[in-house]
Every structure is written in structure tokens, then in C-alpha cells.
Amino acid sequence: MLAKRIIPCLDVDKGRVVKGKKFQNIQDVDDPVALAKRYNEAGADELVFYDITASNEERDIFLDVVEQVAKEIAIPFTVGGGIRTVEDIHQVLRSGADKVSINSAAVTNPQLIKDAALKFGSQCIVLSIDAKEVAPNQWNVFTKGGRYDTGIDAIQWAKQGEELGAGELVINAMDSDGEKDGYNISLTKAIADTVNIPIVASGGAGIKEHFLAVLEQGADAALAASVFHYDEIQIPDLKIYLQENNIIVRRERK
């Protein structure tokens, strides 16, 4: 049976993993390669790396991090942040990433998803959606780190992303991101009911029950950052808890 995935997310700035709350108050936490190794050993199913600076000068440092991670760990990982062209995608895949996550650039240029899916295959093209609730049960797509309301309906955009050829969706609920009050279940479920590609829930994980709730309600994977970075939740404990609650998870027998 296909297992539900637990995905630690690492925001990388100038070669370091950082964690901020609601995209602010950024603070240094760790070395990306060391953290990646630790998560791999703990049983993380995948990793996500976001290049949060994504300036041209620092791109090479980031690509070097990607290559080092690929060298050290043998689980899949996704790279996002600053992906604007097919050539950007080519670069990160060649550096050793398995999937590429596209966010704002897809909103400005939906054709990018289509071109990338045709060239590299849908399986490595992830559409990442930052959504905020603008009215009860109405979620809009936001860009520019959550500052700009595009006016686009998030559920419609998810559907369009699937049609354009995205192989997976990351649904980042910006209202709950960094708050540790739980994933946005209604948004995740609404999108899971609309598309037939895997869904990664993101934003809001604080306790183990949050993971259980979203994985029971349509998410194929749950992404989190600080609860893992600060050792508030141990991945092996989380997986035992999920398994006890009838969620299929991968636990390697040693």
C-alpha cells in the first residue's frame, strides 16, 4: 500500500537553513546537509528545500547545497524558490533534485508548468500554491511571499495546475503558516476533492494530531518545518502515532 509521506521543509538562505514565522523574524538554525542527513536517518520520506533569497549571486551557493544533499542522502527531495524558467528547472534537476516546486512564476506564466511538464515529465513538476482565506470558504492565491492577492481562486488554480501538467500540489495555507494551530483542513480537502494528483498539506503543524487530521482528510503528505527543526516532534514518534491511528506510513525495519 502506498504510504502517506512526512516531509520536513528547509528554507535555505545563503547556504543556511532558516525558519521564520509568517515569513518574518528569520533566524538561523542549521546546516542544510547536516539537517538533511538527520531527517533521512529519522525516517523522513522526502525533503523540500526552498531557496528563500533566490538572488542571482546566491544561486550558485544554493545549487551547491542541492548537489551536496543529493550526494549525502538517498531519499527524494524537491527544490523551490526562484524558479522562473525551464532553464532554472533544468539546473536544479541536474544538480540532483528530484522535483521542482514552482510558485509565483506559474501564476504570472502558466505556460511554464506546461512546458516544464512536457520537457521533464509531470512527475517532477510540483505546483506550490500560497492561499489565504479572503472570505468564508473563499481562498485566493497570494504571491510575493504572501503580500499580493492575485484575486485567483485557489481551488480553480489547483485544477488548472493539474490540467497544465503539474504532478503534485503543495497547498500552503498562509493564515495558519507558522501558527502551529493545525493545517487548514477545509482548504486541503476542497482541493483534494477537485484534483486527482497527490496533495501535500503545508502550514500550521504544531502537534502530532494535526498531521493525523490532515492525512485523514485528503492529503497524501504533510509538510512541516519548525516542529522538526526544534525537535518538538520526532519523526519516528510521529510515524508510530500515525500507524496506531491507521495511517499507512513507511517504517524501515532495521
Binding site: 504510504a3 509531470s122 525495519r253
Partner: peptide
């Protein structure tokens, strides 16, 4: 859901040296 994405278990069929030292079912990506 398509693509089939993630860790799934392998069930062994015909014997092969390929699956030597591996449990009866195991996860691969």
C-alpha cells in the same frame, strides 16, 4: 491518483538474487 508518487511496498514473485537479504515486503520510492 496519477502519478503514483511515494513509498510503496514490494511483494516478491519469482526468486532472484536481486531481492536477496531483503524482507518479504519492503518500501521503495
Amino acid at each position: 491518483k496519477v502519478p503514483h508518487m511515494g513509498w510503496n511496498t514490494i511483494t516478491k514473485h519469482n526468486k532472484s538474487l536481486l531481492t536477496l537479504h531483503l524482507p518479504d515486503d519492503f518500501y521503495v520510492y
